[in-house]
Amino acid sequence: MGKYIIQRILQAIPLLIIISIVVFSLMKLAGDPFAYLAQDPRATPQDRALMRAKYGLDDPLPVQYITWLVGDDWRMRDKTGDGELDSYGDRRGVLRGDLGESIVYGRTVGEVFSIRLPNTLILMVTQYVVTIFLALFIGIFAALRKYTVADNIITGISFVLFSMPVFLLALLLVQVFAVQFKHLGLPYLPVSGMYDPRGDRSIDELVRHLILPVASLAAISIAGYSRYIRATMLEVINSDYIRTRAPKACPNGVSRSCTRSRTHRFRWSRWWRWTCHSCWAARSSPRRSSAGRGWAPRLLRRCGGPICS
């Protein structure tokens, strides 16, 4: 196991290098970061050239990449753009924890990140937790009631949500829960910010501000995940090890009565846990599920060979 993990990590290193080169080149394609100075009457072309030299933007691309990766404090640099080497650089490089300086914000990138990261995390973690719980619940519920009215309604709503661009759903939710509720004199939800500027920075305020963004982000992922969990559940329910266990857990196999029966609650929960494990195992290995377990290879196996030739 340890050997396998080390092997995987070693395999990831060239991948990380390729990703960083691709992203770095793309950022360079995006243009000159000092282009905005061209419109500024206070900045002369000489100023612009000086800025470019200071940040090393006139270096060849590979040199800029190396500087970004491992810094330039080990080599002499031309910082004034006059063609002479002035002094050692002051960048330490990403590998030594120096993310560089943000030209827009005038601070280090690390600072800019650390200001925004907590807010992003609050939103994403909440969204992810809500998504996991609701998707699991809805997916399993729909699978147990396959082809009933409830399942069809869930399927219909999932399809509609899944087909919506996320900002459209957000606009719709805002329109209903903020704009229309306010018109109707009902309690309405805030549409921007994290806290009420006039109120306190309490957790209640934060939650109130979180409802709409989390709902719009989560709704669409719930629609996707719950479909996936439903499909996996249906596959797992019919597998041998559940079939052999099911009579022990529920007398009539996996039936609705089993969810209602208090005496079987313990075993029900165990059964539930197995299916969840199977769902997550399948979910966590998208590669395997798309390659070996998906419908296409099975199609080929079932047909026992070539389709058309």
């Binding site: 087909s163 919506m164 459209l168 606009l171």
Partner: peptide, 12 residues
Amino acid sequence: GALITLTVLSIN
């Protein structure tokens, strides 16, 4: 918005 949703829905 409704047209986009309908189109994508029918495609799905």
